[in-house]
Each structure stands twice: as C-alpha cells, then as structure tokens.
C-alpha cells in the first residue's frame, strides 16, 4: 500500500513542474508573437526583390555577359554546401528531430557525394554536425531572437565565397519553415546559383539602369542571397518558439492530469489508512468487551 505522505510529495513536485512549464509556455508565446511579426514584416522586402529580379530575368544575357555575374552561373554539381539553420536550444517537441532527420536525408540523397560542406547556424545543427563528423566549415551560434541583416551578412559571404572559389557548385539552405503555430516543416532551398524567378516576359528590354546594368546586378544579386538567408533565419526563430509553446502547453496539460490522478490515489490511500485504524480500534474495543 503506497504511503499517502509519499504520494503527497510527488503531487507537489508534479505541480512545481507544471508551474515551470506553464511559465515557459507564456514566455515562448510572447516571443513567438514577436518572431511571427518579424517573419511577416520581412516578407515584403524579399518578395519585392524577387519581383525586381523577375522583371530583370528576361534580360538577354549571352554567355559572355553571364560570366560577369558568376552568382547566376549554373554548372555541373559535384559538391554542395548546406547551410543548416536550427535553433540553439531544445524543449521544442519534435522540431529538432524533424530538422535533423531532414538533414540526414539531404546528406544521403541530395548532396551528390554524401559529404557536403556544412555551415551550421544554430547550436543544435552544429552539435549534430560535430557528432556525426560532417565537414563543418563554419558555425554561427547564438544569433539571438532578433538578428539583424548585419548578423547574417558574414554567413552569406562565406557561402558566396565558397561558391565563387569553386569549392562547391551549389549551396542549399535547410531550415524550418513557419507555416502556422501548429505546423512547421523543414525545407531545403537552393541559395546558389541564384535561380532566376520567372518574370513577365520582355519587359526588361527598355529598362534604364543607373549607373549601369552590371553595377546594379552586382549589388542586387548578393543582396538577394542575403535576404533569402535572413528570411530563413527569421522563419527558424518563429518556428522554434511556436513549437516550444505548443510543447510546453502539452507538458503543462500532462502534468495537471498526472497531479489529478495522484491526488485521487493519495485520497484513496488516506481513506484506506483511516478505515484500517478505525477497524483496529473497534477490534480492540471488542476484545475488552468479551
């Protein structure tokens, strides 16, 4: 028979836990809201930039001109790099295992030689790469909850440099796309070479460029890479807090259920004890009477 006092101790510790997970849920909820706002307010810029690029997409570039814009140059892919964007922390349900499962899948099936260069953004991805002995070329951890474009620029620079030096023929990013509070999916996107968006045809022919076409594109293309990366990092943060909030809410609910069950068991045990004592006393009294 379980001791009521022991059960009471367990009830207390479960309730404490529920308090902590409840607090974490609230913190994650407020951070989530802000992170979601940032994702949505960052979207117009990347969409517009994509549009501008799309408008320019119909520019007739012959192979000689293409040489001037190496970020657009498609070549046979023999080696790839993966920018792995993950949260720094756990306690977010299945989020991290989902993204790492996707990573394994990428390494096996999409990286051509099974050994991509890995640029880890976020601690979980870094730890994964170190644990599984990947070719980790750079790591960026603790970017915080609201990174600016300036924090992202070095990451983009490394990727662009590796691509331009010919060390890799394509650069992909893997991050958790924020779909909604309840749903986040890991996705892989190609960052380099830049795939030119479909544009409204032959519009670009009569564009005026200042100072000139080359200068404009040479500024625009790296910016496009940066902004795509930035957006991915923002999505990752929003996904993380959403997943954490949901996970913590589940944990709080479970703790409540457990504490209810334990309270019931405790009361039963207490009643059983009292019944026992009463029975003993009655038996004792009976013994005197006869």
């Amino acid at each position: 028979m379980p001791n009521p006092r022991e059960i009471r101790r367990r009830v207390r510790s479960v309730k404490n836990m529920a308090q902590i997970t409840r607090a974490m849920e609230m913190v994650a909820a407020s951070k989530m809201r802000r992170a979601q706002d940032r994702v949505t307010s960052g979207r117009p810029y990347s969409e517009r930039l994509r549009e501008v690029l799309g408008d320019l997409a119909s520019l007739q570039l012959d192979s000689e001109q293409l040489q001037e814009f190496p970020l657009l140059a498609q070549r046979e892919v023999k080696k790839t790099a993966l920018i792995l964007i993950t949260p720094d922390r756990g306690l977010a349900g299945a989020l991290n295992s989902n993204i790492l499962r996707r990573t394994v899948q990428y390494i096996r099936n999409e990286s051509v030689d099974g050994r991509p260069q890995v640029i880890a953004v976020g601690k979980k991805g870094r730890d994964f790469a170190a644990r599984t002995n990947q070719d980790l070329v750079a790591e960026f951890i603790r970017l915080g909850d609201r990174p600016g474009l300036n924090d992202i620029r070095p990451i983009a620079q490394i990727a662009i440099q590796e691509f331009l030096d010919g060390n890799v023929d394509a650069v992909h990013i893997l991050y958790t796309q924020f779909v909604s509070t309840l749903s986040q999916t890991p996705v892989v996107l190609q960052l380099l070479p830049i795939e030119r968006p479909e544009g409204s045809s032959d519009k670009a022919q009569d564009y005026i460029f200042e100072p000139n076409e080359k200068e404009v594109l040479n500024q625009l293309l790296p910016r496009y890479v940066e902004i795509n990366l930035y957006q991915a990092v923002l999505e990752n943060i929003a996904s993380f807090y959403s997943a954490q909030m949901v996970a913590m809410r589940n944990a709080t609910d479970n703790a409540k259920e457990l504490s209810d069950d334990l309270s019931l068991a405790m009361n039963k045990a207490r009643q059983a004890q009292i019944t026992n004592e009463v029975a003993e006393i009655a038996a004792g009294a009976n013994a005197f009477r006869t």
């Binding site: 408008d55 519009k203 009569d206 564009y207 460029f209 200042e210 100072p211 200068e215 404009v216 500024q219």
Partner: peptide, 17 residues
C-alpha cells in the same frame, strides 16, 4: 547613385542604386 533622381508620373522604367 549617379546624382539625384526626380520621378514624376509616367517616368520610364528604371532600376537604380
């Protein structure tokens, strides 16, 4: 980038730094 731009309605298509 090449000096001040004044843009009025009906301006030609332009991309500038």
């Amino acid at each position: 980038a090449d000096g001040s731009l004044g843009i009025l309605p009906g301006h030609a298509k332009l991309v500038s730094l």
